[in-house]
């Protein structure tokens, strides 16, 4: 366990370094002069050079990278010139809203995906399976933003049942989390179906059947627990997917979270904020994957070191 933990931590650490390098490169490659953004177009060349020096932008690239890393280590994500606020402040203001949205989207995925997976596995190659699997593949193919617009037009605008956008109330959360979750649910359906089918072909399931256990009992008591484990490992990858979906969902529903912040900062080329949002979501993914791996190891020690 200890050796596995150490290796896993080391691996995650290397990935984090990689992430910091890539975000730094992207920020460095942004067209336009960040100094000009600060001092304005009319500043004299002397002032520009002065500010460039104070901001450390006249130093070699690798020195800039290490000072960026140093600031990151101290929890300093830079300053947003567009919003005139420290980036940490902007992000912490919105992080909660996005976490709530991502979690409820995830809940929708699980609530729809796992039962669908079970049903399609139990009724494999029967009419129920064909209908539900077809629905699932349509779900995977649905464009998130189109689904969101469809909800807004029909449910919010025409029927007036739920708010068109914004946040603050549970009602504001329903359509965005459905939009976010419906598309992802099909992935859980597939995972659960595949692994349940594998479990069903195992000896101990046959034994349970032979011992006279009812199908229901076999499916839930013997099959379910083993069949759902692979879906747990997907949760780590899913965070990456959800964070992408959040950008679109928050834009469509005008929901004040990290995704909307990311879009706004890209429109204004507000580099520190772009870097921070990309960095933060990538860190979420790494941490989540790490937690899932450890959990997985605890649930099923056979998997271990591969």
């Amino acid at each position: 366990m200890a050796a596995y933990l150490v290796r896993r931590i080391l691996g995650a650490f290397i990935v984090l370094i990689g992430i910091s390098i890539i975000t730094f490169i992207i920020a460095y490659a942004v067209p336009g002069d960040p100094v000009r953004t600060v001092v304005g177009e009319k500043a004299s060349p002397e002032v520009v050079e002065q500010v460039r020096h104070t901001m450390g932008l006249d130093r070699p690239v690798y020195v800039q990278y290490f000072s960026y890393l140093n600031r990151l280590a101290h929890g300093d994500l830079g300053f947003s010139y567009y919003n005139n606020q420290p980036v940490t402040h902007l992000i912490s203001e919105r992080f909660g809203a996005t976490a709530v949205l991502a979690l409820s989207g995830w809940a929708v995925e699980i609530i729809i995906g796992i039962p669908l997976g079970l049903l399609t596995a139990v009724y494999n190659r029967k009419i129920t399976d064909y209908i539900l699997s077809s629905l699932a593949i349509i779900g995977i193919s649905l464009p998130t933003f189109w689904l969101g617009m469809w909800f807004i037009y029909n449910i919010s605008y025409k029927m007036g049942i739920l708010p068109i956008g914004g946040s603050g109330d549970i009602k504001n959360l329903i359509l965005p989390s459905l939009t976010l979750g419906i598309v992802g649910a099909a992935y859980y359906q597939r995972l659960v179906k595949t692994s349940m089918l594998e479990v069903f072909s195992q000896d101990y399931i046959r034994t349970a059947h032979a011992n006279g256990a009812s199908s229901l009992r076999v499916t839930f008591r013997h099959g379910f627990r083993n069949g759902v484990i692979p879906a747990v490992t997907y949760a780590g990858m899913d965070i990456a997917f959800l964070m992408g979906g959040v950008v679109i969902t928050e834009t469509v529903f005008n929901y004040p979270g990290i995704g909307q912040l990311a879009m706004q900062s890209i429109q204004h080329l507000d580099v520190p904020v772009i870097m921070a949002t990309v960095l933060l979501s990538a860190i979420c993914v790494v941490v989540m994957n790490f937690i899932v791996d450890i959990l997985y190891f605890l649930i099923d020690p056979r998997i271990s070191i591969s």
């Binding site: 691996g11 290397i14 990935v15 990689g18 992430i19 890539i22 992207i26 490659a29 942004v30 067209p31 990858m237 965070i239 990456a240 997917f241 964070m243 992408g244 979906g245 950008v247 679109i248 995704g259 990311a262 879009m263 890209i266 080329l269 772009i274 949002t277 990309v278 979501s281 990538a282 993914v285 790494v286 994957n289």
Partner: peptide, 24 residues
């Protein structure tokens, strides 16, 4: 594989958005 892991850690859509914004 470490580079691949790093690439997979980025939320793909956000990553592409950032790059397209940089490239015009």
């Amino acid at each position: 594989m470490r580079i691949t892991d790093t690439m997979l850690a980025f939320p793909f859509l956000l990553f592409v958005i950032a790059l397209v914004a940089v490239l015009k």
